[in-house]
Amino acid sequence: MFQVTNQARKPTTTAPVLETAEMATTKGHRHVHVDKGHIHIDNISVVFGGNAIAVEDATLEIKPGEFVCLLGPSGCGKSTLMNCVAGFVKPSQGEVSIDRVAVKGPGQDRGMVFQQHSLFPWKTVEHNVAFGPRMAGCSREEASSIARTLLGMVGLGPYAKRYPATLSGGMKQRVGIARALANYPKVLLMDEPFGALDAQTRHMMQESLLDIWDEFGITVIFVTHDIDEAIFLADRVVVMSASPGRLIADIRVELARPRPPEIIADERFVETKRRCMELIRQESLRAFELKGEV
C-alpha cells in the first residue's frame, strides 16, 4: 500500500506547490513561501499542581528552518516543553517567543501534529485539511484547493472524500501533517507523531516527513523517545532528563542530507547514537533510582 501511495506522491510533489505559489501571487494575500520561525525558549519552568516540576529552567534557541528533536525518557517533560511553544501550557516562569513575538496561546503560526492523529472523525479527509484555512478566513473553494494540494503532497489525493475511520494509522498521520501545514505555519510541532505506528510505516513516514520539511523549509520541533528516529530526522538532538525535566545535551547531527535509510549504518550515525544512548541510559537509571526511593 505504501509503495503505491509513495509512487503517487513523488511526481506530484513539485507541481502543486508551483500552482499554489502562483495562486498566491495572483491573489496576493497569502504567504505561501514559508516565514521561517525563529524560536526562543528563555528560562522556561513549568510547575504542575504546586510542587511537581515538569520542566526546569529550559533555554533553547532554534534557528529558522531547523529540525530539532526533543529526546528523552517518557515523562521527562518534553511534551510539556513543546506545549509551551504551542501555547497550550503557560510556563510558570520564563517566556517563549517566535520571531521575537511572545507566545500567548495557541495560534495558526504553529502547526501541531499529535500522537493520536486527532483528526475530526465527522469531517472528510479534505475537510479536515481545509479546516485551518477556513478558520483563517479563506473561502470554501480556496480552502479546498489548498487542502487538495497538500493531500497530493502527502500522497492522499485519492482519499480526499473518505472519512478518517476508513484510513490506516499511517494515512491518518499523513492527513494530520497535511492539516497542520495547511495554514502554512512558521513552525511545525510534532508530539511523538509516529509513536503508534508499526516499524515499517514509521520509516516510510520519517522519509516523507523529511521530503515535506525540505519542500517547506519550515522550523520543526519533533518530540520522540526513539533515538534512531531523532538522529535520522534532526539537525540537532536536544536530550532531556527526567524529574525535573532539564535540557542536558544539545547534539548537532553531522549527517549530510538527503539522508538515505542506510545512513543508520553510517559511522557518524552510530557514534551520535552511542552518545545519546549513554546520556539517556544515565538519565533512565537516575529516574529509576529516584522512583525507587519514593
Partner: peptide, 15 residues
C-alpha cells in the same frame, strides 16, 4: 468531547 480535538481545532485557529 475529546479534548485533544479541541486542542487541534484551537491550534488551527478556531474560535
Amino acid at each position: 468531547t475529546d479534548e485533544s480535538l479541541v486542542r487541534a481545532a484551537r491550534s488551527l485557529g478556531a474560535s
